[in-house]
Design a protein around this nucleic acid. Structure first.
Lengths: 221, 221
DNA sequence: GACGCTCCTCGTAACTTATAAGATGTTCGG
DNA sequence: CCGAACATCTTATAAGTTACGAGGAGCGTC
């Protein structure tokens, strides 16, 4: 499924690169994407670039204004809340499926991912964000539902944009100390096959997630 | 949010048209999409066409084979099942939110949509499918969560591809008679604000949905 | 506030390059 | 001499470049 060879055509490169810049914040929300400039900076002509931009626009990361310009999608509290609500529904379902279907390979991967979480509990930063994302992704994969995995990966990336806001602007305290425990516990529940409790834990995990602080920050302005 | 003006640029037209042909089955799964031919049939050059194709490929409706060709994504029982699982999680959440947030306008829209369901209960057909889709969409909208609405609209369209399989190939009995009742009941629960029971009903509604028969059909070959 | 100037996206078209598949041919063991 | 394995040529088509034209949007000017 979704074979779609991965030969990085230029269009693919443009897509990945721009997406990354947007999600990482390198391209600020609302900033303009000039075709010719961007094409030059990515060492390609505008044809593949435009394909990438259109794709990103259909994913909601870019706002296209016909005959005008393309801009990085703005962020607002409403969208943060909506992403949050969707994940509150999907994430628990994913772990529930994972608990029913995890394989030995999944278990190994999860244990490895949770270990990588350990060294970065003190403070948020790019490594901590990556490790955190990887752990959740490993959980998602264990659901063995590609459609769900794709959705969740995407939702995660989009929520992460908001997480950064909530983290970077305020003092930026590290991940909650109970976070690591929670992750470990969630993993154990998945491994033991207790989908119901794993889902419940995930629900709480998301409720307490830092998205909330991003909403506050956005609402404050 | 997702303003993205709707001025139908050619690229947009191509996207909508091809998507429609795929979902409606006019373009069979696995069939080839030749750039130049298609461009001609859509009265445009390949530039906007390629933008559309890339978009559809990133949505999973088209499989792209670099330097070779583009084909309509194939269908299989695994994907049907996955779509089904995702909707089993999201649809109930949507009605739960809807029950909490429906406005007068939503209520009017839902009542109108359920009426349009009435004349087409006897047999499945394009009108019945459209009316059915519209009713569910109206429910989704009442959740007032744009992110969720977008996801569900998309999931609906994709599942509908499978529904058609389950309907068209076998004798093609009409919508179950209890379907109309269920829809009406679900709507009333949303209107009365009983999110919990509405969600529960939706879960059952989806479980019994005809997607199941599509899975059987696909597995049989 | 109407006109025109300018900028930039949208779309077209012709051309070059890259890649995969199949046909064709070539070599070498039996 | 036959046939199988392997290399090469041909062909079809996508991917990308470039140049150019059309037209909407904003802005300044009168």
């Amino acid at each position: 499924m979704t074979s779609t060879n991965v030969f990085s055509s230029k269009s693919e490169v443009a897509y990945a690169e721009i997406r990354d810049r947007i999600l990482s914040g390198a391209l600020a929300p609302g900033s303009r994407l000039a075709q010719y400039e961007l094409a030059e900076s990515l060492h390609m002509s505008i044809t593949p670039l435009r394909e990438a931009i259109r794709r990103l626009s259909s994913e909601g990361l870019i706002d296209l204004d016909t005959h005008r310009d393309a801009r990085v999608a703005r962020m607002d509290a409403a969208e943060a809340r909506q992403l949050f609500e969707v994940r509150l529904s999907l994430d628990p379902s994913a772990v529930e499926l994972a608990a029913a279907r995890r394989t030995e390979a999944d278990i190994t991967a999860m244990r490895a991912a949770v270990e990588r979480l350990l060294p970065v509990t003190r403070q948020w930063g790019e490594e901590a964000l990556t490790a955190h994302r990887d752990f959740h992704r490993t959980l998602y994969r264990a659901s063995h539902n590609d459609v769900m995995v794709r959705l969740l990966d995407d939702l995660w990336d989009k929520s992460d944009r908001y997480r950064r806001i909530g983290l970077v602007l305020p003092p930026g305290d590290g991940p909650r100390t109970r976070d690591l425990d929670e992750h470990r516990q969630m993993m154990e529940l998945v491994i033991s096959g207790d989908g119901e409790r794993a889902a419940e834990l995930m629900r709480n995990h998301i409720r307490l997630s830092l998205t909330a602080s991003a909403i506050e920050v956005l609402e404050a302005r």
